[in-house]
């Protein structure tokens, strides 16, 4: 029998937990208990993307899920997924991240850049869209960002976006963000509504602007050695289970957001939907970042963006053709 230690750094309220439970049940049932899954919630076995990937290489952790930012530890060019406003809607995002050609491309890249240690199981999302959320100053247009200190993670793209709009990006460790918002070390944060509600930031924030500058893509990985050690039948089951996890996370997100938005409104906070005109302005800040990205990541970046943007185009086409067939 093979044991798979599955790790995710969120907690039992997060959608990863639902996905993991379904995966465990699916795999254990379909392999007749030959493959068992142990779920480790939070930082019991490893505490950061880098550490978890190293634990996968050591064979201690067998499955792990990371955002694009986390995955950039093994495949730096994947940060291109965080180029602002690259994805236009939930529907396009889901189709893109489940696009087969793009998934194949990503799987190959990640195997290559990790010396065949780590394999991509499936891509999905964790938490929906990153938006601008502020304490004192409502953000209606990019100009409003000027002079505002936004908490960001230590990722260059996130910081460039804020800086490009004239704001001041400030990296703060996740656990210190609440206090930093409360005391005014930062004036705002760029997070999904789910993360905001999970951490009770709505108590300190007043405005959220639904500009959707980044989609929080995430990926499930498995350590390649363990995967190869499975029988072909078991490998199939694990792959199908991975696809199932992806779908579950896409599906649960909108449901979880309902509660998060309810919490937001209960706190007496405002939701700002930018006008189409304002969105044009927001999106105009993406191009320089894209150029910077291409310069920074060279051929690898070029290759990634080609694959990614082709997948986005295919997805948009699917959405269009679906709409057209119904609305003709």
């Amino acid at each position: 029998a093979t044991e798979l230690n599955l790790v995710f750094l969120a907690n039992e309220d997060d959608q990863e937990y639902d996905a993991a439970l379904v995966f465990k049940n699916f795999v254990e049932a379909r392999t007749g208990g030959e493959v068992t899954v142990n779920i480790f919630v939070g930082a019991q076995l490893c505490g950061s993307a880098n550490e978890c990937f190293e634990s996968m290489r050591a064979g201690v952790v067998n499955m792990y899920t990371a955002t694009a930012g986390g995955a950039s530890a093994i495949y730096p060019a994947v940060q291109g997924m965080d180029i602002p406003y690259a994805l236009s809607s939930d529907r396009v995002a889901q189709l893109t991240l489940q696009d087969q050609e793009f998934t194949n491309f990503m799987r190959r890249q990640i195997l290559d850049s990790s010396n065949n240690d780590i394999m991509l199981l499936a891509m999905t999302q964790t938490g929906g869209w990153r938006n601008f959320a502020t304490r004192d100053k409502p953000i209606h247009t990019p100009d409003d960002v000027a002079g505002v200190r936004f908490r960001t993670i230590e990722s260059e793209i996130q910081q460039r976006l804020v800086r490009s709009m004239g704001g001041s990006p400030t990296p703060i460790p996740w656990l210190e963000v609440y206090t930093a918002l409360q005391t005014g070390v930062v004036d705002g944060t760029k997070n999904s509504i789910s993360d905001i509600a999970n951490m009770n930031f709505q108590e300190q924030l007043n405005y959220i602007t639904l500009d959707g500058h980044a989609y929080m893509a995430s990926m499930w990985f498995i350590d390649n050695a363990t995967f190869r050690s499975l029988t072909p039948e078991q490998q199939q089951v694990v792959l199908d289970g991975g696809a199932l996890m992806s779908t579950i996370q896409f599906g649960i997100q909108p449901r979880k957001e309902l509660d998060a938005y309810a919490k937001w409104l209960e706190a007496g906070n405002e939701i700002i939907a930018p006008t189409e005109e304002a969105m044009e302005q927001f999106r105009s800040h993406a191009e320089p970042i894209r150029e910077w990205y291409l310069e920074r990541f060279g051929d690898a970046g070029q290759e990634f963006l080609e694959a990614f943007e082709a997948a986005v185009a295919r997805s948009e086409e699917i959405v269009e053709s679906d709409r057209a067939s119904a609305m003709q």
Partner: peptide, 14 residues
């Protein structure tokens, strides 16, 4: 094993 990984901010080889 970490030689092919990079840190997030400085992109230093881990």
């Amino acid at each position: 094993r970490a030689s092919s990984s990079f840190t997030l901010a400085l992109q230093l080889p881990l």
